[in-house]
């Protein structure tokens, strides 16, 4: 269980970040292989969203380096960062839909922004993406008229709108019913199979995650404590993993 094999799409070296005296990331290092589905697990408040924000350049680390496809984005200017971000899709934890735009306009937004397409083509792409997440019926609703799960599905469609090379999913299934959760996982697998893309997931749902991921990492106390293939994780005797899979209250993950 050392590193994920293959060409790295993302590489973190000793990334540290603190907020008001709280060390959230304390030397995070890992590699995420091109074309893989990699999941970062960890308890809530453990710094998973902070980690994603660093990888998309929304936040700069106190120290360390973040390589995206070979380029260090730490200290990069906004113009260069934007060139790299054009390859990204991001599903935020609370979807972060634009609440002044309808469902349809939300998904169309990145397409209109970055591709010069006819309105008819834009609509065709948008409807296709929304149909895939089962939201094709709600084109003209505004985000405040949707449930949390529906917002998340629209967020997913928006993240995938430009067929990005690299997609970050911050808790794509939390707060969803089991059926929708299955739909989302199927969607992740299907879209991933269609294109040669790299998916980075953040999730608590260890059982779901072990089924879809190629590689799983555990963020614990600001570092990657354990990582490996789903098989390795399943058969691991590491107390941290056992506590996570067994949903038991005893182990290293105490509420201190």
């Amino acid at each position: 269980m050392s590193g994920s094999p293959g060409i790295p799409m993302i590489r973190l070296e000793n990334v540290c970040k603190h907020y008001n005296g709280q060390q959230v990331l304390d030397g995070v290092s890992f590699e995420i292989r091109k074309g893989s589905i990699t999941t970062i697990m960890g308890r809530s408040g453990g710094g998973k969203s902070v980690l994603i924000r660093h990888m998309i350049g929304l936040e700069a680390p106190d120290s360390g380096a973040i390589y995206i496809d070979g380029e260090n984005i730490v200290g990069m200017g906004s113009r260069e960062l934007n060139r790299i971000r054009r390859r990204f899709g991001v599903l935020f934890q609370d979807a972060a839909l634009f609440d002044s735009l309808t469902v349809e306009e939300n998904v169309a937004f990145p397409i209109r922004e970055h591709l010069r397409l006819r309105e008819k083509q834009v609509r065709a792409i948008v409807h296709d993406k929304l149909d895939k997440v089962g939201m094709g019926e709600h084109l003209h609703k505004f985000p405040n008229e949707l449930s949390g799960g529906m917002r998340k599905r629209v967020g997913l469609a928006r993240a995938l709108a430009l067929d990005p090379d690299l997609v970050f999913f911050d808790e794509p299934t939390s707060g969803l019913d089991p059926i929708t959760r299955g739909v989302i996982y199927d969607l992740i697998l299907d879209t991933h199979r269609e294109m040669d893309t790299t998916y980075v997931l953040v999730s608590h749902d260890i059982h779901g995650v072990l089924n879809v991921s190629d590689w799983v990492m555990m963020l614990f106390k600001g570092r990657i404590a354990v990582q490996g293939t789903p098989e390795e994780i399943r058969s691991s005797t590491d107390p941290l993993i056992q506590q996570f899979t067994a949903v038991s209250g005893h182990g290293p993950l105490s509420m201190d």
């Binding site: 924000r53 929304l58 906004s78 934007n82 971000r85 934890q93 972060a96």
Partner: peptide, 21 residues
């Protein structure tokens, strides 16, 4: 109020992540 709530619900972060200034 509008910009403040966009900031707090990460809509501004979403713009940045889509390479929109």
């Amino acid at each position: 109020a509008e910009l403040g709530s966009m900031r707090n619900s990460q809509q501004i972060d979403a713009l940045v992540s889509m390479a929109v200034d």
